[in-house]
Design a protein around this nucleic acid. Sequence first.
DNA 1: CGTCCCCATT
Length: 594
Amino acid sequence: MASRVSTASQRHAAVAILRSASATRDLSKGMALHARLILSTPFDIVLHNHLIAFYAKCGCLGLARKVFDAMPFRNSVSGNFLMSGYISSGHHRDALGLLRVIDFGGSWMVRTIVRSMARAVEQWDHVSYVTVLGHCASMKDLVLGVQVHAQALKRRLELKVYVGSALVDMYGKCDCAHDAHCVFEVLPEKNVVSWTAIMNAYNQKELFEDALQLFLDMEMSGVRPNDITYAVALNNCAGLAALRTGSALGVSALKTGYWRYLPVSNALINMYSKSGSIKDAWKVFTSMPYHDVVSWNLTITGYAHHGLAREAMEAFHYMLSVAEVPSYVTFVGVLSACAQLGLVDEGFYYLNTMMKEVGVIPGKEHYTCMVGLLCRAGRLDEAEQFIMSNCIVTDVVAWRSLLISCQVYRNYGLGHRVAEQILLLKPNDVGTYVLLSNMYAKANRWDGVVKVRKLMRNMGVRKEPGVSWIQVGSEVHVFRAEDKVHPQMDQITEKLEELIYQIKAIGYIPNFAMVLHDIEDEQKEEHLMYHSQSSVVQYIPRKGYQIHPCRLSAAIQNEVHVTLLIYFDVIKKILTEKPEIDEAYREATLRNAS
DNA sequence: CGTCCCCATT
């Protein structure tokens, strides 16, 4: 009896050592323990399982495997540790081979799954299912996910809360919100993770309102949100630019103490930024005790989105000064800021020198920014060369950027070439076809206009209704392209025309858009004037455009920026009698928060 | 042993 107690406590201590060695990736510490363990008798399966976990964490899959193979007997935990080790280090084939889900005779994916799955699946425990489903979720492997689901059903495991939540998440990540919902609905016990997973599935599908409703349902059912739940809910607000709801959630997170968690404060930055309140986003940032690279990236790209490229660059340099290492996304933000400011040399310095220094390999998005930068500087031919020599010839976005600049600089010769180039890529979004049609119209190539129209019809490309909305106070003002039902429509249109007149007077080409007009009338000069690349409007993937109070087009300079700010002030005043109330409310919220 | 968040170009 006494010896058993001592063994148990020794085991406890050994597990603790292995855990800490895993956490710090202290290979020698764990190996020393391993050496002692080999000599000790009797064989302890729990310790050996943790040994597998330790080696797997340290990236020594070979050693983990050796321990596994040398064990006189194993349990499902041994397999799970090894498998999650393989999965997290990317050896998916080995991981799944371990449990013989898949034969590796040929392609590892689809065909062999069904045949071989039944063989070893009886060795799985419920954690195996969770592990594999997590893998399916991150790989978006719906085919395997469905197979696993079928097996789970057979063994009646799908109602267990961990397995169920993993299923909900898997379907959500695979873009099957409906299936996620079905699994979620029948779960007899739903915990905070199940709720968060389903909310996130709706978020993925851009069903933001439904996701927010789920947040309320969850609270009604007595489940408390955690930091991730708040983050997901705030991301839904960001998708709707629902400033009021987002602020309220921020206050709620403050009350419950989740405000200080990184996912929550990052989501708050995102929400404020996407809702047009970049100042509040910055206030959140400065009130955070520490930041991660996502916080920085959100701030940098947030400023860039608002046309505040100077501030974006400042934030970037601030980031470097506190020795935070920029990431792939950081450089996307920085280069887009450079593009706005026309900083060609600096842009190339970041692309060719700094990115190499910090070990970030430039990708499509960076090259696309560089195209935008060259276009912004009016170096259209270089931009064309750049596209062709940087493996982004198939990137519609890059060509579109060039196409727009061709219009701005009235270089219709190049514009025509670019349009032909884009057509070869067979784009499938309306926006591109509208741009193409505009280009041809401007270049007086009516044959081109007809061609584009025909293509759109044949491909079944339908025009999404242009919708803009802005939240002022507690009201959301919606503007549809095809109707003019907003009571203050006349006033707003009048102001818009006035502003465009002013911009033209200073000599700028008004390429900012406010989608209050009908994009059906592509041929009208008026339309060509209003409709162009994103600027005052921010595209929201779901259904339309969100007017940003201070978003500024790359091609518009400072004095126009000021005009725009004034202009949006005017709009706000038109839309609300007492705009300062909303302002005061936000101030109060922020004061509470910090 | 395990499930939920993570920013980007036009």
